[in-house]
Structure formats: C-alpha cells, structure tokens
Design a protein around this nucleic acid. Structure first.
Lengths: 229, 229
DNA sequence: GCCGGAAGTGCACGCTCGTGCTATTTTCTC
DNA sequence: GAGAAAATAGCACGAGCGTGCACTTCCGGC
C-alpha cells in the first residue's frame, strides 16, 4: 500500500532529514548524532546510517535540505513578485516571517554560517557556496529592477546590508526574545530601501521612523502572516 | 620563582581559559571537551576538571572571559573617546578591527549568540544578559552625545543596526572570506551615522558611497590598524 | 625548613559516539 | 507469487565523553 509514489527508501530518507533539520536548528549541524536521530525516527542506528554512509554526508544532506527550504519559502515566491521594490520587499517579508515563526529549515541555513565559519571542510565549503548564491540572487533583483532603483545602486552592498538586518533580527528575536525586534527590523529595511530607491537627498518619509517611536503600534505592517512553505 | 604575583592555581586557571577561548572560537562553546583542553594545556583531565567542577561552569567561565575581552578591547577604549560621533566611531572601529584580526575572545562573544539562541540553560541566560548590556551601552553612547545627534535619535534602534552591520561583516569576512567585506561594512556604518547625525533630509555625502564603487581603493579608511587588547 | 592545604595525577565508571560487519526482513519487478 | 534487490536490524568495535575518588606532589606561610 504505497501511501505515496516515492520508493520506500526515499520516504525514510526524507523523514530522517526532516527530523535532522529540526534538530540541527536547535543544536547545530555539528551536534547531530546518529543515535539521537535513529531514536527520533524509530530506526536502528545502522539502518539510518546506511542511508548516508558517513556523518559528513548526512550533514551535507541536511544542509542542502535547509537551503532548498529557504529557496522554496523565501526566494522562489519572491521571484514571482513584480520586479523592483515589490520583489525586494517580498523577499524581505518572507524572510522575516520565517524568522518570526522559527522555520527550522530557513533558520538553519542562516545559523549554520556562524557555526561553520571557522571549521574548514566540505560542509563549510558547500554552505559558503549557498550563501554566495543567495547574495547573487539579491544582487540580480536589484540589477533587474527596470529602473526602479538608482542606476548606480550597488546590489552587492544591499545584499550584505539585508543580511545584516536579518542577522540582527535573529539575534534580537531568538536570543534576546525582544518583542520589538520585528518592528526595528522593518525600520532598518525601510532605511535601506530609501537609500536605494531615490536620489541622493530625497527626504524619504520612512527615515522619520528611525527615531524613537512615541506610542507607535508594535508592528505596523504585517503583510506576511502566512505560512512559510 | 614566581613569574607573576598570582597564585599557582589562578595562573593555571587562566591558562586553561585562554586555551578554551581560542578553541571555543573555532568549534563553539558546546564542543569544548575536557580531554582536549587537558591535552592542550598539559594537564590531566581530572586536574583540569577540578578547577571548575562541571563542564557548564567551565563554559560560563569561558563566556565571561570572552565578554571581558570584548569590554577591554572594544568598549572601554571607546568610552574614553570624546562623546558623540567620535565615541561611536571608536567603538565601531575597534569592533571591526577585532573581527578583521579574528580576535578569539571578541569574536567568540558574538558567535556564541547564534550557537546558543535555541538552547535554554544557564550559559544562554548569561550570554543574553551580556548582549543586553552591550546594547544598553551603545544606547547610552547615543543618549550622552551632548546634542551631536538628533535629539529624538533612537539609540536602541542604532544599537541593533550596528549589531547587524557587524554580523554581516563577520559572515562576509569569515565564512565567505570576501576581501571587500570591511569596505562594505564601513559604508553601511556611515549610512547609519548619516541618518542619525543630521536632519531628516540632509543630503549626506557619505550616502553617495553606497552606490557601486568604480575603481575605488579597497579600504579607504584604515584608522584602526593596531592590536585588539 | 617544616608542615598543612592547595594543586594535580591515575584510574575507573557508565555512556555515547561514528562506523563497520553479517543477517534478516521488506519492497519492487517480472 | 517467485526471485532479485533494496532496506533495515543486530551486534560489536575502539575511542572519547563527563565525572568521581583516592592518592601523591608541590607550593607558600610560619
């Protein structure tokens, strides 16, 4: 009775990786253990192990899955939005939404960067490649904006800045559990957009939001409240 | 022949923690092992263990040391600079310098945030407390600027944004090994300062630097090239 | 210089780690 | 439904983990 069209082995493999992504999101890629995963999926250690052949292969599979989820939940939908600012906003909104909801795959993809940045090896190399691809995607969004941004806009700079805004959000939201984290993140993003969209001295209205809010509602724009997959 | 005024035990303890900070910077606080540390310091496992009594106590000691180094290398010197923009720049310059040189203590303090953000426990609680203190320090720098910044400047927002800029720098510098990382980081910081220092629509000259540089020297302002301690 | 306490060693423990085998069971194909 | 192939279990291994304890060595104050 095949509950799906997938072969048995593939189904099991996905169940394992699913479990592994959730675990790695909590404890890190490096602290995944075969025994733990086996217990969590109801397999024997060796049965699980046979699916990957080594722990490093397992880590790579988990990392690839996390990256794929990031693409599916954040990048791909954004690329279907209209070009220019709307597309950039779509990317940002979905990214924030995944952070807010602690989407394990998406968050793992970002979190692994810090874990592996000083640990040479195949996993780190793959991760760097994946992050470079994301930066390149953001760059392309800026370049293909059809004149919505200043013609000399530096897409790479913006990509790095968006990364920074998101990393700061993750810190405030997850470690510090700051309820105002999302509002500040949106303020920071608006500032980036303002510098990008108009001439050098635009009097952008959103910049005003950078000052201390006096009785502002905690989060004014909840455009993306949906799921993350 | 006492090489220092410290008691023997204290000297050994410091040597252990010194080693531990460097190791934890590479592999993370959670992957510190007693055996590894003992081998690295020439002690027996139990001899080393006796200095702390538990692994968690060791981790706390390492974390505290990392935070202390951050204070000594970044915060304290900055607080001796003149108030206002200069002080903020001093903080930023020193922080960047430590990132560039991969100062283990300073970097560990930041890196641990990602490692522990989903792992409840005493170590995480301490780390969150330390990060809150740093944010509060930045906030105070903004507040005590004696009118150098706009009076309604949001110091907490700025603190979060500076964090983001630095986290982005760490990612680009350490994982991606991007040689242009520091230049972009300085551009991003100048943008933050520009929004803070002047009126809402200032035509700040530094914002021009946000666009694609055409044959710019890789790093134009190397004001802080010295050591980090 | 002696002596008490601090500092450090040796050894053992129960556990878990990643990784190999060989069987055995289950699934897919004709 | 038989037979091939894939999937999984059982078991064992050497190593390393954090921790405890009894013992020895060494430093520092008198």
């Amino acid at each position: 009775m095949p509950t799906s069209t997938l072969a048995k082995g593939e189904r099991t493999r996905r169940a394992i990786i699913d479990h592994a992504v959730a675990t790695a999101y909590r404890v890190g890629l490096g602290r995944l253990t075969i025994g733990d995963l086996a217990a969590g999926t109801g397999l024997s250690k060796s049965g699980l192990y046979a699916h990957f052949g080594s722990k490093e292969a397992l880590q790579l599979a988990v990392l690839d899955e996390a990256a794929a989820r990031f693409t599916a939940a954040v990048v791909r939908p954004a690329l279907q939005a209209p070009r220019g600012e709307t597309r950039l906003r779509a990317l940002f909104d979905r990214w924030v939404a995944c952070g807010r909801s602690r989407d394990p795959g998406v968050c793992l993809f970002v979190k692994a960067a810090t874990e592996l940045d000083e640990q040479p090896g195949a996993v780190r190399d793959r991760l760097a490649e994946l992050h470079r691809a994301l930066i390149s995607t953001i760059e392309t969004i800026v370049r293909n904006a059809d004149g919505a941004f200043r013609p000399d806009a530096d897409g790479y700079q913006l990509a790095a800045d968006v990364y920074g805004v998101m990393l700061s959000f993750y810190l405030a939201h997850r470690l510090l559990q700051d309820p105002a984290a999302e509002r500040r993140t949106r303020v920071a993003f608006e500032t980036l957009l303002a510098a990008l969209s108009r001439g050098p001295s635009p009097d952008p209205p959103t910049v005003v939001a950078r000052v201390r809010p006096r009785g502002l509602p905690p989060t004014e724009s909840a455009t993306t409240t949906g799921s993350c997959s």
